[in-house]
Design a protein around this nucleic acid. Structure first.
Length: 201
DNA sequence: ATTCTGATAATCT
DNA sequence: GATTATCAGAATC
């Protein structure tokens, strides 16, 4: 059921390499807004992310390395995938090896492979394809098999944004610790956010 | 538009 | 046995 508007693409910047991620999460997270994430050619523009720092009680890495969080303690530029309830979430590991910081990818604006995403998700509404960390993993076919994969090698591709979008900042969602840290970023007015941002003056 | 509840499984204590 | 960086559907404002 792809309509013409579904096939609209956006301009892709240069491919992101590991160097891009080897900086503070607080620099990388806002710059990922407007970038593009594809897995096997399916994906879209990132419209919402959250930063998790190793000094942050809400981060999985806060209490030290465990088998699950091993990837977060490795070098930057790799995918950390974990399961929560019945879905998966993807993160981009940032900063130097051992810093255990990552950016959670929370929502995409679907642009490539709409039909495949609809088939995997079992819904038709474009707004429900990738508007949430679990939804976008299902739409792109991401699972535990992707844990530890490099973000700059097949099947994963990431591209820089070509312009600077209007980026909003706010408090993170769905966590119970360090609730007040304003480390969520998103595109102002996007229809594809997992939740609207609270109004800010 | 906001709030709630149950599903369901790996991980850690 | 407790916890969880979620989702969908239902109920209520």
């Amino acid at each position: 059921m792809a309509r013409k508007s579904d096939q609209t693409t956006h301009k892709l910047g240069k491919a992101l390499n590991r160097k891009f991620f080897d900086r503070s999460v607080h620099e990388v997270a806002p710059e990922l807004i407007g970038a593009t994430l594809l897995v096997d050619g399916v994906g879209g523009m990132i419209v919402e992310v959250e930063a998790y720092h190793h000094t942050d009680p809400a981060a999985h890495s806060f209490n030290g390395e465990t088998p699950r969080t091993r990837i977060m303690f490795g070098p930057a530029g790799f995918a950390y995938v974990y399961r929560i309830h019945q879905v998966y979430c993807v993160n981009a590991v940032c900063e130097a090896e051992g810093s255990a910081s990552a950016v959670l990818i929370r929502a995409l604006q679907p642009t490539f492979g709409l039909d495949e995403m609809r088939a995997r998700r079992g819904v038709d509404d474009k707004r429900l394809l990738c508007s949430g960390p679990g939804r976008l993993c299902q739409a792109l076919g991401i699972g535990l098999a992707h844990n530890g994969l490099a973000l700059d090698r097949a099947p994963i591709e990431m591209f820089a944004r070509t312009g600077v979008p209007d980026v909003l900042r706010g408090i993170r969602i769905g966590i119970s610790k360090a609730v007040e840290y304003p480390w969520r970023y998103g595109v102002r007015g996007s229809k594809y956010l997992s939740k609207p941002f609270a109004k800010v003056a």
